[in-house]
């Protein structure tokens, strides 16, 4: 806890910004714990704000409530600056984008790192080897780009580099990287019902992910915006135990709901990068 460290007159190397989803969403709490176990495992000097953390204001800002956003931002900046924080790591691309890009003009200047980049650094430094735990060899994994990581901040390679160490079969969806399709939750959509339409965005995206994992070219052809006809894989049934990897709490919710909608929970799971690494490293508590 940051307050305890400060009481002892210490400053942590990094502040782990947990985020509201990481703190309150039951599913994403598991990601928070997995990431913390990795931090403990590699012996990083870190702290969390605990109850002093408050929403970055991202959902308010994207929804047009600039006033509420700035109230939240100023409050958080006061807290962070009060502790003399220099470096912030977070597992949420929305918190990452907001603190990194929108806080500086309001007086909050920190080095902000998304956990995908942080994990990549740990791997590059040899501190995480993805050994001693579960093996992903031969399993199919497809990574779903988060808009606020990818297009918003040009981070496409770090999450893929993290997945590389798992030695799994990494498959790219047709709409990936700069062309990645949103999960449907951004821009405060997470907190509202979608407008009337033909389909929910997360279902569209999950269909693409599943078709990619299954090697189902017919499904891919029917998805709008997928212009190339070439199948990703030779057609064949999914071998089971496939993974849709995400790096964002909202993508996690949307993709997991999509998998449920498609009744594929039995053979396809949605995991965050930190969970996969913690598992491969044998850190499942």
């Amino acid at each position: 806890m940051m307050a305890d460290l400060a009481a002892r007159g210490e400053t942590p190397e990094i502040l782990f910004w947990v985020g509201c989803a990481g703190a309150f969403d039951d599913r994403y709490k598991r990601v928070t714990r997995a990431f913390v176990r990795i931090l403990e495992h590699v012996g990083v000097n870190y702290a969390v704000l605990g109850m002093e953390e408050s929403c970055t204001g991202d959902p308010a800002k994207r929804a047009g409530n600039e006033f509420l956003f700035q109230m939240q931002a100023m409050q958080n900046i006061t807290t962070l600056n009060g502790y003399g924080i220099k470096k912030v790591v977070t597992a949420c691309p929305h918190c990452f984008n907001t603190i990194k890009n929108e806080y500086p003009a309001l007086g909050g200047e920190y080095e902000v790192i998304h956990h995908s980049t942080f994990l990549q650094q740990l791997i590059n430094e040899g501190k995480v080897k993805a050994e001693g735990g579960e093996s992903f060899k031969g399993r199919r994994i497809t990574f779903h780009d988060s808009c606020y990581l990818g297009r918003a901040n040009n981070i496409y390679e770090a999450p893929r580099a993290v997945l590389e160490v798992l030695d799994a079969d990494l498959l790219e969806m047709k709409r990936c990287k700069t062309n990645g399709l949103c999960c449907g939750a951004g821009g405060a959509q997470m907190w509202k019902e979608p407008e009337p339409g033909k389909k929910d965005v997360n279902v569209e995206r999950t269909e693409e992910a599943l078709a990619t994992l299954d090697g189902d070219a017919d499904v891919l052809l029917n998805l709008q915006g997928v212009e190339s006809n070439a199948p990703v894989l030779p057609a064949g049934s999914n071998r089971g135990g496939s993974v849709i990897a995400v790096a964002c709490p909202f993508c996690m919710t949307m993709m997991a709901d999509g998998v449920k909608n498609k009744e594929r929970e039995a053979d396809v799971q949605v995991f965050d990068l930190a969970e996969l690494i913690a598992s491969a490293e044998g850190l499942n508590a």
Binding site: A23, V48, C55, W191, N284, A285
Partner: peptide, 26 residues
Amino acid sequence: GAPWAFSPSDRFNWADELYVADKAAV
């Protein structure tokens, strides 16, 4: 201080189960 209706005092609850509950996570 969160977009959902949770109490701020529960914000650190995730740590309670840090080393117990996630064995079967993956």
